[in-house]
Design a protein around this nucleic acid. Structure first.
Lengths: 335, 335
DNA sequence: ACGGCGGCGGCAAGCGGTTGCCACTTGTTG
DNA sequence: CAACAAGTGGCAACCGCTTGCCGCCGCCGT
């Protein structure tokens, strides 16, 4: 029964008047259960429903300083890896009655700053994914606002990250079992924390197993990037290559295949991230699955907990386990 | 120079005191350029900057009833199609200084309702992508809040959509040119407005060109769905099949290939959406590219315009053009 | 009978901005 | 020189909700 135009939202005052109580009582009926006699509360609820009352979030936030919103900032939703993280964060938010605010930085540190800045006042907590900002900047934000970083380690700031070391070890073992004695790592963007961790993990593992490791790159984390990685392949071939991620791996495979090198007969290629494409491509990619959804989810819910007052600051990072997925792009080394 | 703990945010009152003016002047210095003498404004700005003043969005919203936020609700960010839309909407928001609020419904109409409900009070406008709600429900929301729907036509509600008809015509012509005289359409989810449009467009085009059209499905809009679509292929084979989307097309190709049917030599397959995978798969998919980014962008900016007072309600839907991308999954019909 | 207490509801003061209106200065005009 | 308009700044009343505090009432203990 809405009449035309500009209808003012109904407020607690309207409800109060209609129910014959004070506004404060209406407020309490909703936000302070038990503080009001059950029957009164019931009556108020009924009247409110009848009038279509809906609390004004801004007004509430003004006094409580809590908005019930969580900001997730990341580089690119279009990247399946991040999309998965968004999904996880969304779930956590829904569970806790929070609203998700999404900020895409498109890889720019300044944009990231700007978005965080903007969000700051509007949200109860912030989750930074693969941040491009400096440790100092991040720490600065963390002291003003509940903050958790994903896939990044900033001392003193809560973080949750994919546990790369065992992942790289598993890859190395897998390759070693197949008889490979040297591996090429094709690096991703230098600014990438993940790249650093993967390289490090790989170095540790190969050292331990006595495998020779070579590094090329950095290349763009894309198919095109992967293709550029193997231009001078003949001069430095190894029987196995580990790529920064699936896209790069696919690029490598294509390039190799195009120049007559067969995968996995001639060289084995392993990706990272378990992107959906990895399964669809020929040969299907051996890769490692990271719990991206869980990353987003625990990140968000920790942030929310922080906002709710959990003062568990100086904790160690939470590390999420990975899983090696062996498909067709890896095979026995041809001696 | 931040001291420990619970520091209260600095407000216009603090700035006013420090600058020796009234709070209202501070307010105007920021939100009403020209209303205050230039030098005064400058001084206020300086003081504000010094004190690290940041307007409280909630307080502002309380009086202005404008939050500067836009809600984008969609089923699944994990779907590249939607991810692209998000990206577009994000761009539009950034351009206009808006903040993006993202709601994932995971295909559930109830969740969609709930999220819209929640968002309602917090945003200036809403963009619904491939909504699962009834026309009536959507219209209801539209009369309370600026709303635009994407890929959906609801009379009286502003909408922007991919122009399917020419797209399907292009597909049909392409196939006809290759000598195909019958086409199978593998349908997507029944609830999908897009599916209806694609089928309709295909019917029109095939009729016009005198091509026989058959329909199978519906199937899930996934690779698995596509695989189930061709179980009884031998009984009803056509030389060409048009799939609901790229995923389904890939499923079809795999199934066909697995049972010894070659693509495109024996049958041509065309997808829809120009998902990134389409290019990576073998054979690379012929498909149609929809301007998804633009869809999100114009949707969002129209919604923002609406919020800003544009009363261009009863307009016709905006239709965005598509582009046929011919790759390797289509070829001459073998007579 | 009286003081105390717990349960319930109302009063009113904010929260941090915005804005209509008024007042004071200057500059302009007849 | 008076009247007036434009340019600036301040006052104070909100916006809608929360919350500390007070008051009223009925009940209990002694």
């Amino acid at each position: 029964m809405v009449s035309e135009g500009e209808r003012r939202q109904t407020t607690i005052y309207d409800v109060a008047a209609a129910a014959g109580v004070a506004p404060s009582t209406v407020s309490r009926a909703f936000s302070r259960p038990g503080r009001v006699r059950a029957e009164t509360a019931e009556r108020i609820r009924a009247v409110a429903a009848e009038l279509g009352y809906r609390a004004n979030p801004q007004a509430r936030a003004l006094t409580t300083t809590r908005t019930g919103m969580l900001a997730l900032v990341l580089a690119d939703v279009t990247n399946p890896v991040f999309a998965e993280v968004v999904r996880g964060a969304g779930r956590a938010c829904e569970r806790d009655g929070y609203t998700l605010l999404l900020a895409e930085t498109e890889e720019s540190a300044e944009k990231e700053r700007a978005m965080v800045d903007r969000a700051q006042g509007s949200v109860d907590a912030i989750v930074l994914t693969s941040s491009r900002m400096s440790d100092a900047a991040i720490r600065q934000i963390a002291k003003v606002e509940p903050l958790v970083v994903l896939n990044r380690e900033v001392p003193g700031v809560p973080s949750v990250l994919v546990d790369f070391e065992p992942a790289m070890r598993r890859i190395t073992e897998h390759l070693a079992e197949l008889g490979h004695r040297q591996i090429t790592y094709v690096a991703g963007p230098e600014a990438s924390w993940a790249d650093g961790m993967r390289w490090r993990g790989l170095r540790l593992a190969t050292e331990h197993l006595g495998i020779r490791l070579r590094r090329v790159g950095p290349v763009a984390p894309t198919v095109a990037g992967g293709q550029t990685a193997v231009v001078d392949w003949d001069d430095h071939r190894t029987s196995a290559v580990v790529a920064y991620n699936d896209m790069v791996a696919i690029g490598i495979v294509r390039r190799l295949t195009a120049s007559g090198v067969r995968v996995p007969e001639d060289v084995s290629v392993v990706g990272f991230d378990n992107t959906p494409v990895g399964e669809l491509v020929t040969p299907a990619l051996t890769t490692v699955a990271a719990p991206l959804r869980a990353l987003g989810e625990t990140g968000a819910s920790n942030a929310i907990a922080l906002a709710a007052g959990a003062r568990s600051r100086a904790t160690d990072p939470i590390r999420l386990p990975t899983r090696l997925i062996v498909r067709e792009s890896t095979g026995p080394a041809r001696d």
